[in-house]
Structure formats: C-alpha cells, structure tokens
Design a protein around this nucleic acid. Structure first.
Lengths: 221, 221
DNA sequence: AGGAAAATAAAACATTTGTTTGAAACTGGC
DNA sequence: GCCAGTTTCAAACAAATGTTTTATTTTCCT
C-alpha cells in the first residue's frame, strides 16, 4: 500500500466525505467508500468502529476544515464598518459552502451540510455547539451594529435566518437552480457575483426591518 | 378491509407521503409504508408497480394538492398593488410548505420537497415544468412591478432565489432552527409572523437592488 | 534480529429490503 | 347463483449491505 500518498485513514475520510455528500448517509455504502479509497472494507470498521462512527468523523473534519479555511471574519478587523463585515461573512459562507477549495459545491460536501440541516444526525449536536451557534452569534452582532439599535432577539434571529437561508439555499438547491438558470448557478466563477448580490439584498432587508421596528405601521389588510 | 374509511390506494398514498417526507426515498421502506397504511406489502407493488412508481405518484399528488389549496395568487386580483401580491405569494409559500393544512411542516411533506431540491429524483422533472417554473415566473412578474423597472433576467432571478430561498430554508432547516430559537421555529402559530417578516425583508432587499441597479457604485474594497 | 502490537485482507454471516408468486377473497354483471 | 376480473394476502426469493471473523502482513520498539 506504499503506492498511495495518504495513509489509509485519511484516504477513507476523503472518500467518505465525497460519497456521503453525494448520496447521503443511508445511500452511501461502505463498499463504495472502500472502493473509492482503495481500501479493504474491513479497514473502515477497524479505524472508525462502524459506519456511524465514520460519518461522525467525516462531519467533524468537514466543519473543521471549512471554518478554518474560510473563517467568517475573513481577516477583517473588528473595527472595520459592519457592512463590510457582513459582506465578508456572506462571502465566506459562499466560498466555504460552494467553492472547490471549500466544501466543493455540487458534487461535494456542501450538500452534506444541507442534509444535516434537513435531518440532523446524532453527530450533528456537537457540531452545532462548536461551529454553528458561535457563527450565528457573530452574525447577530454584525446585524446589531449595522442597525445601530437592538430590535430584540426575535427580529435579530429572523434577520440571521434570512441571510443564512439565502446562502444555504444556493448550496442546497443548486441542482434545481442550474436547471432553471445557468447564470445564477453557484459555479466557481459566479460565487463572487452571487455573494455580492446577497450582501446588497440583505443590507436592504436589514434597513427595512430597522425602519419597520422604529416606526411600526398598522396593517391595512 | 371495510373497516377503513379510505380505499387502499389512497391510504397508501397518504402513508407514503408521510414516511417519504420523514425519512427520504431510500430510508423509507415499503414495509413501513404498508404497516402505516394498514395494507399488505404486495398491495403497493400491485397499485404502483414498484417503489419508484409509488414515489412518483406521491410527488405528483403532493404538488397538486399544495398548489391547489395554497395558490400563489391567494385570491388576489392582478390589479392590486404588487407589494401586496408579493405578500400573498410569500404567505402562500409558508402555509403551503409548513402549515398542517398544507404540506404539514416538520414531520410531513414539506421536507419531501426540500429533499427533491437537494437531490432531484427522475419524477421531479415533470413537477418542475408544471409547478415550479410557472411559480417562479409569477414571482419575477411581481418583482418587476415592484421595482418599476426591469433590471434584467440575471438580477431578477437572483431576487427570486433570495425570496424563495428564505421561505424554503425555514422548511428545510426547521429541525435546526427550533434547536437554536423556539421563537423562530416555523410552527403553526408562528407562520403569520415569519411570513410577514420575510415579506418586509424582501421588500427592503428589492428596493436596495433597484437602487444599486439605477446608480451603480464602484467598489472600494 | 525478534517479537508484540498494529494494520490489512479475504471470506463468511446475519439482516434488511424490494420484488415476485400463487392462492384466497371480493366485486359486479349475467 | 355463478363466473371473470380485480384486489388482497402470506410466504418465499434474491440481491444488497453492515459487520465480524480469522489469517496474514507490516510496523516499530528493544
């Protein structure tokens, strides 16, 4: 086995990330992963105990790499204006989720995260506390600064969901998006433009929510 | 079998929608569906040929019911102002996707649609042409009217994706959202408020995009 | 060099699962 | 009342799949 560059355990993680992302937990078979990693089937159980153990290891590794390579604060100082920090936050999400350098877009691991949101696995709980909650808190902080006022936790959370939802929808629905509009498919060369759009759209949304909070109007319908 | 209210075929469709939505195609077993429908396993193959045939029938029925009971134009006239039509459009999406009357929220069929976006099945192609594309076209029409100008197909599509993405994200990520914030979980009693928020946020987003289109600014970073 | 521990390999096992089969029960028309 | 067609049922089948077993090879410390 000295013909391989990476050791067995890493090759398994690599192949498993790809195949779990493409097919989902149930549809991904140990045999397919073993074949892709050029590894004996039993090696998977040896290194990761069972299929679920392997999945947990993949999930942890995927999040770690993604948030390490594309931190939400993309090298920006805290004293830079909050609009630009939101811009960096959104760009980081797009590139983390969809770029080849990140979770690999369509064919790759971005969809593994989408699957977790849809149906969290037992291994997701840890990832939620370690990565997602702090990530959300950072976004909320940025939104407060942009608004200049604090509209309360409920509206803040709604804003955060609207922003994150736009980003993740691109990763999640990319198969369908590219069937409807190639211009807006989240391909490598479109990521910059799409991130810029979502940033502007979200700035407008935040401004509108601020207005509505400061001067609530009675409904007419 | 005369003790059942609905005929076998309908009971199977009913149970299959529930279970496919909860577990996904692969993870849902014929046996679980048969048991839930109180039907013999072979009855499924008899009425729907095979598992894939059943899934196709479920998908078609789910979309038909959803768009029939919650049309995107929710009884509004075309000459009403476009902001209110957007409001109706978004409300319809929320209630179609998440209400008990619609695709049944968390435990139900809303997630079946989310799964299709993530990994379209062969049966999805037909649904795409019949329901989703016209639905998108309607939204684009509304956005044009709100803007008062036509920013071009690319920006229009981006707006549509941002709006639809927010709605679908609630349906898709509801398991995680409710773990982070119960106030913003898309439960029956929250739907009105969430739809209202997404509407406002989107109005702000559209306005901002219109501004940026009319007076583009050079980037400073 | 020797030997214990770690790693890899091939084969077999036990379950799960979609599908088929052939018989039984039911339905509606004559 | 009876029969052809339809529907339901229990059992069996065949394929796929996660896991275990046992043997062999490799690694690494003394």
């Amino acid at each position: 086995m000295s013909e391989h560059t990476a050791p067995t355990k890493e090759r398994i993680l690599e192949a498993a990330g790809e195949i779990f992302g493409q097919r989902g937990f149930k549809d991904a078979t140990i045999r397919a992963i073993a074949q892709a990693a050029e590894v004996n089937i039993a090696a998977i159980n040896y290194h990761f105990r069972d299929k679920e153990g392997l999945y947990g290891a993949v999930l942890e590794e995927v999040f770690h790499i993604g948030f390490t390579r594309f931190p939400a604060t993309l090298g920006l100082d805290t004293n830079i204006d909050p609009e630009q920090r939101l811009r960096a936050f959104i760009r980081a999400m797009f590139f983390r989720l969809l770029s080849r350098e990140g979770w690999g877009g369509i064919a790759g691991r971005g969809r593994l995260i989408a699957r977790e949101l849809l149906a969290p696995s037992p291994a997701f709980e840890a990832v939620l506390d370690r990565y997602i909650k702090p990530h959300k808190d950072l976004l909320v902080t940025i939104i407060i600064e942009i608004m200049g006022v604090n509209p309360g936790p409920e509206k803040l959370m709604s804003c955060a969901i609207s922003i994150i939802g736009q980003c993740i929808y691109y990763a999640m629905a990319s198969p369908v998006i590219r069937k409807i509009s190639t211009d807006n498919a989240p391909t490598e060369e479109n990521l910059d433009r799409l991130a810029e759009f979502v940033w502007l759209f979200s700035l407008g949304g935040i401004a509108k929510i601020k207005d509505a909070t400061l001067s609530p109007v009675k409904e007419t319908v």
